[in-house]
């Protein structure tokens, strides 16, 4: 095997690992949120376990990328893919950590032995959109699709709007009834974490555009 083929092989492996991280991120969010919705301890633990796996994958990607940079001095598209893989792996790992934080919130709620005082419509909406954003951003990255990546930016605005909505709604609940403050803050934090996740999804979309065209989109 020539060194170029080995290089291509390594780069493919890095992106396979990245795809695995993406899947872990998505499943972490969905189990963490399910744990919150159904106050399900088992689901919460899934997201906690994912955290370690994701961290190891990120380190693996970092090592492989460092090695390729060191040994192969990549340029052009190769260089962009390697740099982006490193950055995206960090974003995905952050996402998994936010999902873990959400799981911790769920565990806290389980300990409180109390049902939800409202239907979690807004949070469900945020979950759905953030997962969609991550999936789109990853697809854009793999398919070098700039317009798909730009859609991710559009959806971030929806997430922000939903968060704003939840924020106002919960403030109202908490002002009316101060016994709802503990739970209310937990909902609010979950929303805040989802909003952060959406932000990282945008970073992934940015990386996708860089891989596709070499442009660097500045975040607004």
């Amino acid at each position: 095997m020539g060194s170029r083929e080995k290089f291509d092989e390594e780069l493919r492996e890095i992106y396979r690992m990245l795809m695995e991280m993406g899947d872990i991120a998505v499943s972490s969010i969905s189990s963490a949120m399910e744990a919150v919705e159904k106050l399900d301890e088992e689901k919460a633990k899934v997201a906690l376990q994912n955290n370690q796996k994701s961290f190891e994958l990120m380190r693996g990607i970092e090592d492989k990328c460092t090695e390729l940079l060191m040994l192969q001095a990549p340029v052009a598209g190769d260089l962009r893919r390697i740099i982006t893989a490193m950055k995206v792996s960090i974003d995905l790992n952050r996402i998994v950590r936010y999902a873990k934080n959400i799981s911790t919130l769920a565990l806290d709620m389980v300990k409180e032995r109390e049902g939800h005082f409202k239907k979690l419509v807004g949070l469900k909406g945020m979950k759905k959109t953030t997962i969609e954003m991550i999936e789109k951003a990853m697809k854009a990255l793999f398919e070098k699709d700039k317009s798909l990546a730009l859609e991710v930016y559009e959806e971030e605005k929806d997430v922000d709007a939903l968060y704003e909505q939840i924020f106002r709604e919960l403030i109202t609940y908490m002002v009316e009834d101060n016994r709802k403050i503990t739970r209310g803050v937990r909902y609010l934090l979950a929303g805040r974490y989802l909003e952060r996740i959406a932000d990282h999804a945008c970073n992934i979309a940015e990386g996708a555009i860089y891989v596709a065209t070499g442009e660097r989109i500045s975040p607004e």
Partner: peptide, 14 residues
């Protein structure tokens, strides 16, 4: 070297 416009350039430099 970061984003060659031509496919040939890209293939050559990488």
């Amino acid at each position: 070297f970061e984003k060659p416009e031509n496919e040939l350039t890209e293939r050559y430099i990488s």
